[in-house]
Design a protein around this nucleic acid. Structure first.
Lengths: 252, 252
DNA sequence: CGTTCTATTGAGGGAAGTCAACAGTGGTGG
DNA sequence: CCACCACTGTTGACTTCCCTCAATAGAACG
């Protein structure tokens, strides 16, 4: 699939539709979003931490990390955003972001002005609700990451991350849960799990040896899904993948 | 202030009004919320992880922790909720919660049916927007906690938590940032920071010795705010305390 | 006024970090 | 088109921060 604004918006619609009910009219309103496509190199900052923003970044292709930084410039990735995710959708209601966004690999994004997102949210209550719910879903992922980093061993922690990304790529129809592309370096994997790249390397080796996961050349392969889920203590419910019945706003 | 539904709702309005613009009509709509007051003992579960819910819990008095649990029953607190916080406001749009809520001390809550929250959100766009923004604010706290637990030493981690709670209690007008009540045990502090209670005890001792924080008998005292902020690497921007200008929905 | 939480302190162990050297890998420009 | 250089991954030796186990004292609560 050649990256284009349309393909990216289609992924975005799909992501929203996983959890929210959108009418055809809602969907086509989203498809009419205009933004500017930008391609950035690996490691480039998309949003500098602490800067006010007036647009959101829809990931078209590649991988984006949301991160927080310390005074000693160590950093922690708090969420990974795959194609179809709008990394800083929350900034629509809170433009002075306390977080940063960085490309983890060569990445294409579609920059969408907040003004436009606010307009379609205001005109389409179901979209506003979908945006809200989407923020809650990301929030739930952060929350799970706190558990991951706070209460799991390095081994389990990394296994859990591979499970999470497997399900998310599968949902986004960008791979099978047992085989998907995750273009991330071990250093970034370390920043995502609160470890060092040296230790990540050792853990990946053990995951390989125990035939649970091979992660090489940006591709993740999981020979035995159930086995991995078992060691990772993985329960996908935090991804909030159920279509949520309640409609806050009645149909327009 | 004797706990009553009114006082709790007033705190809730105040919390929302920190970040969002609400008209008098909006505020009085919130004040008309009816719920049932419940008092629960320390350690009681308010929401069991993974159970669908049809109401949200507004903390009236006490302290509530949001947590995730592992198979080995270790648990990680991912956020602390103080009076005026509606711990599971996100469940309004996502009732099948992937998280749990537990009282950390004797706590009074006001249980508010989702149906009612959805109704006032639908009737008052500014309230819907405030709810959305409130979820984003909590989300930002989770994200910071990932950084805290993932990339800071035990000492800094705990110092950071005391800073966060200081500002939050101050904002809620429930104490000074240098002296506030935080009715939490060392075991729960450990669950919040991804440490063991033994190590928390040692760190608290050092914080006391270095005259940065004394936390005893449920009261936190900070002799030198700037000194604590410096060692804690604390930057309050993640609390999203600015009144956010954008209005998604035009005035009703 | 006992029983059960909660906090403190010590001793020893282990998971992950640090430092360092080296081997692949891939992109870029000469 | 190849050579170079920067980035990425691997492995070893040593260190350290925090955990585990354990014993005890203090506080809170019924």
């Amino acid at each position: 699939m050649e990256p284009s604004p349309e393909s990216a918006l289609r992924l975005f619609v799909k992501r929203l539709a996983v959890r929210s009910t959108l009418s055809e009219e809602d969907e086509s309103a989203i498809m009419r979003i205009k933004g500017s496509m930008t391609s950035v190199a690996a490691h480039a900052d998309l949003i500098k931490q602490g800067t006010p923003v007036d647009h959101s970044c829809l990931v078209v292709e590649g991988l984006v990390g949301r991160f927080g930084q310390n005074a000693d410039s160590t950093r922690q990735i708090t969420c990974l955003h795959i194609p179809g995710d709008m990394g800083d959708l929350p900034s629509v209601v809170s433009p002075k972001a306390g977080w940063g966004l960085a490309a983890l690999t060569r990445t294409t994004i579609l920059r969408v002005p907040h003004e436009q997102l606010r307009r379609i949210a205001a005109e389409h209550p179901a979209i506003a609700e979908a945006f809200w719910r989407d923020c809650v879903a990301d929030s739930s992922i952060f929350s799970e990451w706190v558990v991951n980093v706070g209460r799991r061993s390095a081994f389990v922690r990394i296994a859990h991350l591979f499970c999470e990304m497997a399900i998310r790529y599968q949902q986004a129809e960008q791979g099978d849960r047992c085989s998907y592309d995750l273009p991330i370096t071990q250093a970034d994997l370390a920043d995502a799990t609160g470890l060092t790249s040296v230790h990540v390397s050792r853990v990946l080796k053990e995951l390989r040896t125990r035939a649970l996961v091979t992660a090489q050349g940006g591709r993740v392969t999981i020979p035995d899904w159930d086995a991995l889920v078992a060691v990772a203590d993985f329960d996908e419910s935090f991804l909030l993948l159920d279509k949520q019945a309640p409609r806050v706003f009645k149909a327009a």
